[in-house]
């Protein structure tokens, strides 16, 4: 039930932010659309623990995001330099990294962060291993130190609130 309220609250927030009109008619349309979307996603069984990351710690998540932004900027400059150098200094390689996250959401955050950082792209995910394609040695080495993995695992709560999470 709390998940349904959360969903309707966020849908309403998005409606109000995007519409910019606050006449009763349009607000009523917004309320009706939120209810329809909630009904459809309830029928499709989409309202589950994955859509509501209550098992993440918000403050640490924001700290992780700011760290990730700095990493993305650094590796962007690295890859951009490699592209514009006439000798094209790339040595592509494929390797696997192990994930230590307990939940699927943590793994998704890890794989997406790898892909978001230019120079490394996650190309496959099986069980607890992510297959990574790297453009050169430096991006691969900075990933193999496991720094990013540790930070994402720290974002997850020590005890997941939903016991089903992570074993699906």
């Amino acid at each position: 039930m709390s998940r349904a309220l959360f969903l309707i609250f966020f849908l309403g927030l998005v409606w109000i932010l995007l519409s910019g009109h606050y006449t009763p008619l349009l607000l009523a349309f917004g309320a009706v659309s939120c209810l329809i979307v909630w009904f459809l996603s309830h029928k499709m069984d989409l309202v589950d623990h994955e859509g509501h990351p209550l098992h993440l710690q918000p403050i640490k998540l924001f700290m992780y995001w700011s760290w990730l932004c700095a990493e993305v900027v650094k590796s962007n400059f690295d890859v951009a330099l490699r592209i514009i150098k006439p000798s094209l200094p790339i040595r592509p390689r494929v390797f696997t990294v192990r994930t230590t996250q307990r939940t699927e959401l943590g793994q998704v955050i890890y794989a997406n962060s790898i892909t978001l950082t230019p120079g490394t792209v996650s190309i496959d995910l099986r069980g607890h291993e992510i297959e990574v394609h790297a453009l050169a040695e430096d991006p691969a080495n900075s990933l193999l130190t496991g720094d990013m993995d540790r930070r994402i695992t720290a974002v997850e709560r020590p005890q997941p609130e939903d016991p089903k999470a992570g074993q699906r």
């Binding site: 900027v73 890859v79 951009a80 592209i83 094209l88 592509p92 230019p118 394609h133 453009l135």
Partner: peptide
């Protein structure tokens, strides 16, 4: 870039920074 997977990195530069 010489092959598909390295081109992914180049496209990543466009759509991130």
């Amino acid at each position: 870039m010489p092959d598909f997977f390295t081109r992914l990195h180049a496209a990543g530069v466009c759509e991130t920074l």
